[in-house]
């Protein structure tokens, strides 16, 4: 049986002048799934999800969200979708509670009917005691939690988050992750973008790595790492690293050079470590392959600005 798709994009593209921000991506997110979009700055993640939640009009391609054609049914879609934008769009001139009920009112939910829901949501994001606080007195982490609570006011079926934890301290980040996992187990479909590999690994059933407006690879994070990188990575950083690497010839390892470091990607590092030891090389680091290796291998190591 084919699972129901909450997001279905085909050949979706968008240019700003000469810049192809999103260059024909295809994306399928199933109901109840958490899908993460990874990519360096400027890869087109934000433009892609802004098209999906209707803030940017696509130049081409097909897009259906929650079973509706995005161009035709945009308002109906927004009634069932919550959006947590990258930038803070809270109403700075209103208190925490007023932010919540004014937003509920945008959805046509009356003040009386929204009251219990607001209490429940402020509890959920641990902002109950900030009820009457002005927005300018909230920390960055509190604002982000409030944005999440606000996006849930109308019990959406799909939640879209653009870098939900960028700039948060570890405590706040873990709280957000925990809440998102709870929402997911409650059946909510989640689409998010992130720079944090740990975030993607912790939350996402599937990820897509984007660069230059295209999706390079897609799949479950652990599987992708295994297939594209391997099980283990050995980093050589010593002065004799090239000589040490030569000792590993014949093992069929993939070698990557970046700055002062050699990266060796392998199924198992055991044999390589043996050889390095007998060659007298001690300056190396053996560790499990991670999503970060996948990301850097796919999108390159140079800075993106």
């Amino acid at each position: 049986m084919v699972a129901e798709l909450d997001i279905h994009a085909r050949g979706l593209s968008k240019s700003f002048g000469a810049l192809k921000a999103v260059d024909g991506i295809t994306l399928q997110v199933e109901r109840g799934e958490c899908y993460g979009m990874l990519g360096p700055n400027g890869a087109g993640k934000t433009t892609a999800i802004r098209m999906i939640h209707g803030a940017v009009r696509p130049d081409g391609g097909e897009l259906s969200v929650l079973g509706r054609d995005a161009a035709a049914g945009s308002r109906r879609i927004r009634e069932e979708m919550g959006v947590v934008p990258q930038e803070d769009t809270l109403d700075n001139e209103l208190s925490v509670y007023n932010n919540m009920w004014v937003f509920a009112n945008y959805f046509g939910i009356s003040r009386r009917r929204s009251r219990d829901r607001i209490e429940e949501l402020l509890d959920f994001v641990q902002l109950r005691d900030k009820w009457g606080e002005q927005i300018k007195n909230l920390s960055g982490g509190m604002k982000r939690r409030l944005l999440i609570a606000r996006a849930l006011i109308h019990r959406p079926r799909l939640l879209i988050l653009d870098e939900p934890t960028t700039g948060l301290d570890p405590q706040a980040r873990h709280l957000v992750w925990q809440r998102l996992r709870e929402l997911k187990s409650g059946g909510l479909t989640i689409l998010l973008t992130t720079h944090y590999m740990e975030e993607a690994a912790q939350l996402c059933d599937r990820i897509g790595v984007m660069a230059q407006g295209r999706v390079l690879v897609e799949g479950p994070p652990a599987e992708l790492v295994r297939e594209r990188v391997g099980e283990e990575v050995i980093e050589l950083r010593g002065a004799g690293r090239e000589a040490a690497a030569a000792a590993l010839n014949g093992l069929g390892l993939e070698i990557e050079r970046a700055g002062d470091t050699l990266y060796l990607y392998c199924r198992s590092g055991a044999k390589a470590v043996e050889r390095l030891a007998s060659a007298g090389e001690r300056e190396f680091l053996r560790r499990p392959a991670s999503l970060e290796d996948l990301f850097l291998r796919l999108t390159g190591r140079e800075l993106r600005e």
């Binding site: 209707g54 803030a55 934008p85 930038e87 769009t89 109403d91 959805f107």
Partner: peptide, 12 residues
């Protein structure tokens, strides 16, 4: 303040 943007993520 991006108030318009917030409104546009609601069905307005």
């Amino acid at each position: 303040q991006k108030t318009y943007e917030a409104m546009m993520s609601a069905p307005l």
